[in-house]
Design a protein around this nucleic acid. Structure first.
Lengths: 160, 160
DNA sequence: GCCTAACAAATGAAAATTCATATGTCAGGG
DNA sequence: CCCTGACATATGAATTTTCATTTGTTAGGC
């Protein structure tokens, strides 16, 4: 886009047509719906994210959980401190690599996440039901494709 | 439709097939790419969001900006304190309603956002170019639809 | 006019997050 | 074996965010 094609900002806000904003808002809006459920259950959002990330894959590492939950590693360490304190997870040493800490849900953690998972799947279904034209798998594949970017500096040159 | 397929714990983590996680990860991954640009420019993410939100619509209110930037109102007040201190924006009284504070960019703020906008549009173009099969407007419309869906029943203050 | 509820923004203490770095561990030369 | 660099997690100070509340303003009965 060069200056010649630029009609001088007659439209509304930049962010209302900016892909990254729209993505963030879509995510935030949908998540906010479920956060109401979490609030009712007295569970903080990051706590839910950790428990959900451990569901179907016990024994994640601290860094692995941080990535999954979109948090920094030190943030995850401190979050896990609280969750251990609250009896939701425990830390276990890795058998092969003593640097690694593996995180496991306690019974209390599993019990807590069990109900939430039911509601999460229910909510997901209602969200998907709002878009009958779009297949769930199709939408999820698109989002996965967006998330697994090929660009860690590799594609920068070809931009213009 | 997929509810049946997901009833019995399948292989893999729950969050790898959970719509809300996929949305959040897609948003986070794409945003992280641009955040590298912000970091290079020495601009914090929330500061960029405010400046971007003011682009094309000067005189937003504090609450309006908070909604646009997906932040709480008190967080925005404090963020604006810092931006005023750094000479990026100014607070102006509203003519008709003395409760309202209108936010305006300073010349310094406008100069800062000008370069970033160029890079933001460039980055957006490269992201869209990764998905030639999907029209930009089509994708944006979908995201707008997801974001502005009425949440049945729950109507709290986060209804952006 | 006065009272009350709703609203917009600001405030302050408490909590969570980040940044930079420390500690401990592994892996691969030399 | 002993470096060196990379890695995984933890730590601590400083910053940011949140929660609950306060202040000031507007609008609507009565």
């Amino acid at each position: 886009m060069d200056a010649t094609a630029a009609t001088v900002a007659p439209e509304g806000r930049f962010v209302d047509d900016y892909l990254l904003s729209l993505l963030a808002r879509a995510s935030h809006a949908i998540s906010a719906e479920f956060h109401a459920t979490l609030r009712r259950a007295g569970v903080q959002v990051p706590v839910w994210r950790v428990l959900a990330s451990l569901t179907g894959s016990e024994g994640e590492t601290v860094t692995g959980l941080a990535d999954a939950c979109l948090l920094q590693q030190p943030t995850m360490t401190k979050l896990l401190d609280r969750m251990v304190r609250d009896g939701l997870v425990r830390r276990l040493p890795d058998a092969r690599d003593r640097r690694v800490v593996r995180i496991q849900m306690t019974q209390r953690g599993e019990a807590l996440v069990r109900d939430l998972l039911v509601q999460a799947r229910q909510h997901e279904a209602t969200v998907l039901a709002r878009f009958p034209d779009i297949g769930a798998q199709q939408l999820k594949e698109l989002l996965r494709a967006i998330a697994t970017r090929p660009a860690r500096g590799a594609r920068r040159r070809e931009a213009a």
